[in-house]
Simulated scan of single mutants.
Amino acid sequence: MNIYHIIIVKIKRKESPVETFAQSAFVMALLICVGWLFIKTTKLNEKHSLNSKILRWTGYGLIVMTIFLVVYGVLQNFAAESHSYGH
């Protein structure tokens, strides 16, 4: 068994919805935690330099984009349920 066989088997394998949800939840939690970390570390620093402001706004952006990602995923799920497969 070579590496190409293993890769093709992994590609052909269908993931269950629970695995997909768990992977998505992990990525979203990671993005929110990194954004929160950027915000907290710059607020603890008390220096109002340009670098700290950029890092703080990067943290806000990460959190907002993650929220939009969740909303978009939920809306996409509702749109897929409302259409029939023969459509």
Rank of each mutant, 00 (worst) to 15 (best):
M1Q: 04
M1F: 04
M1H: 07
N2R: 07
N2T: 08
I3L: 02
I3V: 02
H5F: 12
H5A: 07
H5R: 12
I6F: 02
I6A: 09
I7L: 10
I7N: 06
I8F: 00
I8P: 00
I8T: 08
V9P: 00
V9N: 01
V9I: 02
K10P: 00
K10M: 10
K10W: 03
I11Y: 08
I11L: 15
I11A: 07
I11H: 01
I11F: 11
K12T: 08
K12W: 05
R13V: 09
R13L: 07
K14W: 11
K14H: 13
S16I: 11
S16F: 09
P17H: 05
V18T: 11
V18R: 07
V18D: 03
V18C: 06
V18H: 05
T20S: 10
F21Y: 08
F21V: 08
F21Q: 04
A22Y: 02
A22K: 14
Q23H: 07
Q23V: 04
S24H: 08
S24Q: 15
A25T: 15
A25R: 06
F26I: 15
F26D: 06
F26G: 02
V27C: 00
M28Y: 13
A29F: 14
A29C: 14
A29P: 03
L30G: 05
L30K: 07
L30S: 13
L31C: 08
L31P: 00
I32C: 01
I32V: 15
C33M: 14
C33N: 11
C33G: 14
V34S: 01
V34L: 12
G35S: 03
G35D: 00
W36S: 14
W36L: 13
L37P: 04
F38E: 11
F38Q: 03
F38R: 05
K40N: 11
K40P: 03
T41H: 03
T41A: 02
T41C: 13
T41F: 08
T42S: 04
T42H: 00
T42V: 01
L44D: 03
L44R: 07
L44H: 01
K47S: 04
H48N: 10
H48A: 02
H48T: 03
H48G: 07
S49P: 09
L50A: 11
N51P: 01
N51E: 09
S52G: 01
S52C: 02
K53M: 13
K53L: 09
I54W: 03
L55W: 07
R56T: 13
R56W: 10
R56M: 10
T58M: 12
G59I: 00
Y60V: 12
Y60S: 02
Y60L: 01
L62C: 07
L62T: 00
I63Y: 05
I63S: 15
I63M: 15
V64R: 04
M65P: 07
F68I: 15
F68D: 11
F68Y: 04
F68N: 05
V70S: 06
V70H: 00
V70A: 15
V70T: 08
V71E: 04
V71M: 13
V71A: 15
Y72I: 12
Y72Q: 05
G73R: 15
V74K: 01
V74E: 06
L75C: 12
L75E: 10
Q76P: 00
N77Q: 06
A80K: 14
A80V: 11
A80S: 11
S82E: 04
S82V: 12
S82Y: 03
H83D: 08
H83P: 03
H83T: 06
H83M: 13
S84L: 14
Y85F: 10
Y85D: 06
G86M: 12
H87W: 01
